[in-house]
Design a protein around this nucleic acid. Sequence first.
DNA 1: TCAAGGTGCTAACACGTGTTATCAATTTAT
DNA 2: ATAAATTGATAACACGTGTTAGCACCTTGA
Lengths: 354, 354
Amino acid sequence: MTSKVRSIDVANLAKVSRTTVSQVLNGVADARIGEETRQKVLAAARMLNYTPNEVGRSLVRGSTKTVALVLRDISLIEVDLFLQPLLSGIMKSARQAGYGLRVEGARGSLGGDPYGDLVASGMIDGMIVENPDAGDQSLARLVNTGWPVVQLGSQGLPFENTVQTDNQLAGRVATEHLLQLGRRRVAHVSYSTSEIRAVVERKAGYFDALKNAKIPPEMELVKNGDFESSSGYAAMVELMSAPGGPPDAVFAGSDAIGYGVIAAALDAGLRVPKDVAVIGVDDLRTSAYFRPSLSTVRIHPSLAGSAAMGLLIELMRGREPQSRCIYIASELIARGSTLEGFDNTPRVLSSANS
Amino acid sequence: MTSKVRSIDVANLAKVSRTTVSQVLNGVADARIGEETRQKVLAAARMLNYTPNEVGRSLVRGSTKTVALVLRDISLIEVDLFLQPLLSGIMKSARQAGYGLRVEGARGSLGGDPYGDLVASGMIDGMIVENPDAGDQSLARLVNTGWPVVQLGSQGLPFENTVQTDNQLAGRVATEHLLQLGRRRVAHVSYSTSEIRAVVERKAGYFDALKNAKIPPEMELVKNGDFESSSGYAAMVELMSAPGGPPDAVFAGSDAIGYGVIAAALDAGLRVPKDVAVIGVDDLRTSAYFRPSLSTVRIHPSLAGSAAMGLLIELMRGREPQSRCIYIASELIARGSTLEGFDNTPRVLSSANS
DNA sequence: TCAAGGTGCTAACACGTGTTATCAATTTAT
DNA sequence: ATAAATTGATAACACGTGTTAGCACCTTGA
């Protein structure tokens, strides 16, 4: 119980060789083993409560049955609300396929080649990289080797494997929704200033929509926030005293930004959506319970997670995947922050019991 | 670059033995090695871009420098909003101390002894268990062996190491806050029906407060929800048609529940906090941006995570920790959902730049 | 000159496992 | 009756690393 049980202990108890133990317990197909000794081994293993040491196993097999989720910046774990459903999707698929999960951070590694070192360490069989920095040389080198890597969000490399939503489309759809409501002064607040592709693409979609509607963009109506709602709040405060007057609608780059924008508008006495309509991107679980409930473009991060894991498994098995670039469809969820008189009542009321 | 580099390759290039390579690269203190050969080895290692294989290393060393975060139920990852800040705290402390992190699930393991098997597999040096099921035999056995385990939330075992908040106190403080506002019909909606200790303790604190105020508890005002806001919404709908009339205050067992409760109240035309005051527990990042902003008891899950990791590190090093039971102080955060005329404006406005 | 002690390095073992090549015993085919 | 084939089990190797014991050489002291 307390001391470690090794396969040699099982072998000794069953009075067979360690080889036999290994073959029985792993169910080796072409192993010639008598039924009698097979039962002896199984009995001994059960009696000693034997569980194989995965480290030894990994060493000889050259594979750890473990995958890494590499986060661009672990200090963002707390604030990036997109991560939790993502992790959920990855975990579910990974477990189902018998893979374990490590959480790693890309930045802050000592060496200059964090991705290469992670692979060389032999701890993982594959990795999922969340929102890679565009132009990351370490990652680019690794992707070129063909080693199993799936990126959440493109880096623009020729041989990359990605799972992504069409962020430009999402940005356009969100903005078009505001325009269809008759709004003409539509502002945008992004969720990051850094070079994250999703940020840039959503913004591009915003400009696309304006262009299609033949509305000249005003740079005073475009602000950059960060991962926290507070930045959305601050941006909205600035927008309300914009040169041409306050906007009549805001496309928030994320739901978290949307929360801040709405809060600022309400605090200033504006009515949402009557005076200002607001839409976000994400559809966090909490968004339906804001009042007004937050309109948004749902991007299914949980689904993206399981799709990424599915693709990665194909790659690790050495198969050519059906597609190296999976798009997750997004959908417009119109709620009270854009639709006047929206009925907030949840459609399905899970019954609570006393 | 593409093929694996082993320490023997470094040895060959530097024309020394593998032993020397190991000693140089690990900076063994009492190894007697000439400065000249030391430089040769370092140069060779750098030239080949050598990174030690952690699996081989782990095997011989008997330790993986990896810790597991064991989640009670991985299907709750998506809905339990407490997990993200917790993970953040754990990750930060773990990285700082040079430990990696695996995410595991307690349920759904094939064997009947998931915790024991995880240890026997040799993949981890210690584990943090989140909200263990009370009376889990597998975990109880492991804790008794003295193996490094830190629980987030007590299981009531004699030798357990825990990090927890005083949930009963939190429940009492929250309820007392409502009572001090003059409310007399105070309802409670818990965030789970299962036997999670935190749920039971917060509820006990609620009853404590009522008792101290000499208010007879009404069981019609006590509902059980789950991790999702929808259950809070449903519970509030029921409460509004309670026998003795709707409550004038609700103590929600979690912020997520609080969101649902407030939404239901507003949708029914009630004013918050004038007609119904609502307070939660957690202080999620989004809570300050609800309108009305959610009063709550902040329990610092991020801090709990890093404290748990700190304690675990002490245990793994074989030291006797200063305390085997760390309490994280909670604090009442009164906001607009309980205080009329509360100024919602965030105190620190992080400036957004265009 | 010879023992004693220090310096620089390495052969050999250990960690726990999966797998291949091989051997002995038994059965089948000729 | 003998060769050939099959069955049942294992010795030996491999995976990549850290560490101990020990060897050869050189310096020091008397």
